[in-house]
Design a protein around this nucleic acid. Structure first.
Length: 500
RNA sequence: GGUCUCGUGGCCGAGUGGCUAGGCAGAGCUCUGCAAAAGCUUCUACAGCGGUUCGAAUCCGCUCGAGACCUCCA
């Protein structure tokens, strides 16, 4: 198997070190990634994280692993803002728009899926939703109460972090020290039900006007902010599974709480390898809604945003993101995207070329060249297996693209490589471009481009007709017709067209 | 304030102590009716100061600068 030949090493956030991937069941990988909260549009920064885990999944599968990829949809928990401030605004707005929560969930889930498709991000194997697992969440809260790591107050249940920390290590992932956490930050409100401010909600009692509510042993309420991930990950992947991923900003408290909940309930550490994707930044600052520097993928495609000089295609953007390592911050800029666009075009052109290249069969192989080509193929795996280094992998692909261009132009004859080597080379280039990196040829003939192209032909035809060069004008019309574009002449010499 | 990360050439970005990252941009050349594409050649680095080492962008310390988390955030 390829994964035996090219064992994967990945940086485990738990240890901070690069470790060799040893899966629980040989040949299988259980992967859980925290999905979006579907109460607003996903922005470009969000998309980056999902793209990075798409890359990881694609590569693991390419190596021959059977990957069960679970990515949730959070549709209850921190949706309705019941924080200290501002809850009235949201409640008012929801009422004003007269929307059911599920209508909102549906709208943004579909929007999210649409964005995923645009970036060629493959769907997960399982996409569970928090509201579909209320029963399981209640069960695990019960177990935490039984095990003494939770307490009930007025119909709400909280996780007892201090108690947990006497037996386990709260902070094992994020490096936080409980005493420090107790000292910093805001103080415990006198009305607060928590015993300590570090405690977090497992189940919240629903206020009379709270719209999302379910019956529970503690009265009507809704689940807390972290419990859904613990439930959905362990339900589908087991009490201990291989890899858990998410954005860097979820490391604390979200992932730390997940560990505490799982350990508290099941008595074992839930995850062997934690992977955190870093943030997309704009002018050095994290892209986020609250800072007002975020934009939506659609705005990126249209160029419809003050930060954008113009629009960019989804594939060049994907290429742009793959040029940096998932664990590094990536700074967005028009200049960088413009450069990426050109770089991507180069690789994309070579992809189109290599697909058409046919080896003549006979060969007088040049050993040095053969070795070089085989080495390049090997480098693809070496770099991807080294913590999914897509940036280095792209560098290898650029080198391969140069070779492809040489074959195409005849600078280097295809006969200097034997057919088998060439087929391997070809398959590797196509495979890594399309299957592993998820980069496909730009073929989205957008309507505007097509219009303009046909416009040029129409102008030529008009000129030809004026010159009474009818053989040419007829050729243009006939050739286009064969492609399904019907030109129609109007009375005043204007032309229109239809496409089949 | 606490914890942590980062600072690479005009721009973006890889870099596991010793070997060219790569892309974009710039310069020259080849090819080309003109372009484009492609090919060849080429220039510009490692925030600063110390230290460890035969040798450091890479390890250690300090200084300066930027950022992330500590509240929902991918």
């Amino acid at each position: 198997m390829l994964y035996e030949k090219h064992p994967v090493h990945l940086t485990n956030s738990l240890s901070g070190k690069k470790e060799r991937l040893e899966t629980i069941v040989p040949g299988h990988v259980g992967l859980y990634v925290c999905g979006p909260t579907v109460y607003s549009d996903v922005h470009l920064g969000n998309a980056r994280t999902f793209m990075m885990f798409d890359l990881i999944t694609r590569y693991l599968r390419h190596l021959g692993y059977k990957v069960r990829y679970v990515r949730n949809i959070t549709d209850v928990g921190h949706l309705v803002n019941d924080a200290d401030e501002g809850e009235d605004k949201i409640a008012k707005k929801a009422r004003a728009e007269q929307l059911e929560p599920m209508e909102i969930v549906k709208r943004y889930t579909e929007g999210f899926h649409h964005v995923m498709r645009q970036f060629n991000i493959l769907p997960p194997s399982i996409e569970p939703s928090a509201t579909g697992h209320i029963v399981e969440q209640i069960e695990i809260v019960k177990r935490l109460l039984e095990n003494g790591f939770a307490y009930e107050v007025n119909g709400s249940v909280y996780f007892d972090v201090t108690k947990y920390n006497t037996e386990h290590n709260y902070g094992i992932l994020s490096g936080r020290v409980l005493e420090d956490l107790m000292e910093s930050g805001r103080k415990l409100d006198s009305q607060d039900e928590k015993r300590n401010k570090v405690d977090f909600a497992l189940w919240k009692k629903a206020s009379p006007y709270h719209i999302m509510r379910w019956p529970s042993p503690w009265g009507e309420g809704f689940p807390g902010w972290h419990i859904e991930c613990t439930v959905m990950s362990t339900k589908y992947l087991g009490d201990t599974f291989d890899i858990h991923g998410g954005g860097m900003d979820l490391k604390f408290p979200h992932h730390e709480c997940e560990i505490a909940q799982a350990v508290g309930a099941n008595g074992k550490s839930p995850v062997n390898y934690w992977i955190h994707a870093n943030m997309l930044t704009v002018n050095g600052q994290k892209m986020s809604k609250s800072l007002g520097n975020s934009f939506l993928p659609q705005q990126l495609f249209d160029g419809n945003h003050p930060l954008l000089d113009r629009g960019y295609g989804a594939m060049p953007v994907r290429f742009f993101m793959l040029q940096s390592h998932y664990s590094s911050t990536l700074d967005f800029s028009n200049e960088a995207l413009g450069a990426a666009e050109k770089g991507f075009k180069k690789l994309s052109n070579a992809l189109g070329i290599v697909k058409k290249l046919q080896h003549p069969g006979k060969a007088n192989a040049d050993n040095a060249l053969t070795e070089t080509l085989l080495k390049l193929i090997d480098d693809l795996y070496t770099n991807m297996s080294d913590d999914f280094n897509s940036a280095r992998t792209l560098a290898v692909l650029f080198e391969m693209a140069s070779r492809i261009n040489d074959f195409k132009s005849g600078n280097v004859s295809l006969q200097t490589v034997d057919a088998d080597t060439f087929e391997q080379f070809k398959a590797a280039y196509i495979g890594f471009m399309e299957d592993v990196l998820g980069l496909r040829e730009e073929e989205e003939h957008n309507q505007e481009l097509l219009n303009n192209v046909i416009g040029v032909l129409i102008d030529l035809r008009k000129k030809a007709r004026q010159d009474r060069n009818f053989p040419l004008s007829d050729k243009i019309r006939d050739d286009l017709k064969r492609m399904g574009v019907q030109l129609m002449d109007g009375k005043e010499g204007e032309m229109s067209y239809t496409i089949d």
